Computed example of a mutant assay.
Amino acid sequence: MLARRMQPMALHARRLYVQLMFQVMGNALQAISEVDAEAQQEASALPVGFLFEMMVMPNGPNLIVEHLGDGRFRYHGSSAPRKVNLSIKFKHIAHAFLVLSFQEKTSVAFANDRMIVDGEISYAIRMTRVLNRLEAFILPRLVAQRAVKEYPSNLHLPEKILSASRIYLKVASQFVETARA
C-alpha cells in the first residue's frame, strides 16, 4: 500500500531532478562555449542559428541551445524561437533520470534504445562530444568516467579545476540573472 503512494512521488521527484539538470546543462553549455577552446572548436562546425534540443518525450522537461557562431552557445530555456535542427529525445523520464544521474552513459542509453535522435547524426555526435567535454570538466573524475564514453586523457587536474570553476561561476551568475528578471 505504501509503495503505491510512493510511486507518484518518486516520479515527480525524478521529473523535478531532470528539469533542474536540463537547466544546469543548458547554462553550462553556454558557459563552456565561452571558456573552453576545444568545445568552441567542436561547436564551430555547427551552422550559425543551429538549435539543439534535449527533451523527455512526449511533453517532458527540455532544454534548447542555439549556436551563435564562433563555437558559442546561447541557452534559451525550454522554449525554442523556431523549429529545432537537432533533438535528442529520451523515451521516458526514468531513462533521462538514469543518464542525468550518471548511472548510465549516454552511449549505453542510446544502445539500449532509450533515446531517439531526430536530426543530422553528425551534428548529434558533435553535440555529444561537447556534452562529454562539459561533464569531464564539471563532474568529479570518478563520476565523469561513469558518465562519458571516454574520459579525456589530456585533461589534467589544474586545467580541470580552473575550467570547472569558470564554468560554475558563469552558471551561477546566469541563475542569478534569471532570478532577478
Rank of each mutant, 00 (worst) to 15 (best):
F137M: 15
A13T: 11
N132L: 00
V18K: 04
L29A: 00
M54P: 06
V48W: 05
Q41F: 11
G71V: 07
Q103M: 11
V99A: 07
V99S: 00
I167P: 06
L134R: 03
H156C: 00
M21N: 00
R133N: 06
S101I: 10
R15G: 03
L46S: 04
R15A: 11
F97C: 03
A13G: 06
R72Q: 05
A10S: 08
N62R: 14
R14E: 15
A45D: 14
H95N: 11
I161A: 02
Q103A: 06
R15S: 12
I32N: 08
S79D: 14
A172P: 02
K89E: 12
Q41V: 09
L155S: 01
I125D: 08
V130E: 07
E159I: 06
M6C: 07
L169T: 06
H92Y: 11
G49M: 04
A181S: 12
E38Q: 11
Q30G: 07
L46W: 10
L29V: 01
E34N: 02
S78Q: 12
A80C: 06
R15E: 14
E66R: 04
Q7Y: 12
L100E: 06
N27S: 10
N62L: 12
E34H: 05
H67L: 07
F90D: 02
L100R: 01
E38W: 08
N85K: 03
H156N: 10
F50C: 02
L155R: 01
M9K: 05
H67K: 01
V130H: 05
A124H: 04
L155I: 03
N132E: 15
Q30R: 04
E150F: 13
E66Y: 03
M25P: 00
L169E: 04
A94F: 10
H76M: 06
A124D: 04
K160F: 08
E120A: 10
R82I: 11
A181N: 13
A179W: 12
A96Q: 07
V148S: 02
L68C: 09
Q40I: 00
K83T: 15
L2N: 01
V99E: 03
G26M: 01
A3W: 15
F90S: 00
M127C: 02
N132R: 00
H12A: 14
V24H: 02
V56T: 05
Q40V: 02
H156D: 11
H12C: 12
K170L: 13
V176F: 08
P158Y: 11
V35S: 01
G49N: 04
V99R: 00
G119P: 07
R141P: 08
R180F: 14
D118A: 08
V117D: 08
A96Y: 06
K105V: 05
D36K: 04
V148L: 08
I138E: 09
S78M: 07
I167S: 02
Q174E: 14
E159Y: 09
G77W: 05
R114E: 15
D118M: 09
L162H: 10
H156T: 14
Q7V: 14
V130Q: 06
S79G: 01
M21E: 07
K91D: 13
D113P: 06
V18W: 07
E120Y: 10
G69M: 06
L98D: 15
A13Y: 10
F73W: 12
I116V: 11
A172F: 15
S163E: 05
L162W: 13
L51A: 03
N112R: 12
S153N: 09
L46T: 05
N112W: 10
R126C: 04
Q23E: 12
L11Q: 14
F175V: 07
S87V: 15
Y123E: 12
P152H: 10
I121W: 08
L157A: 04
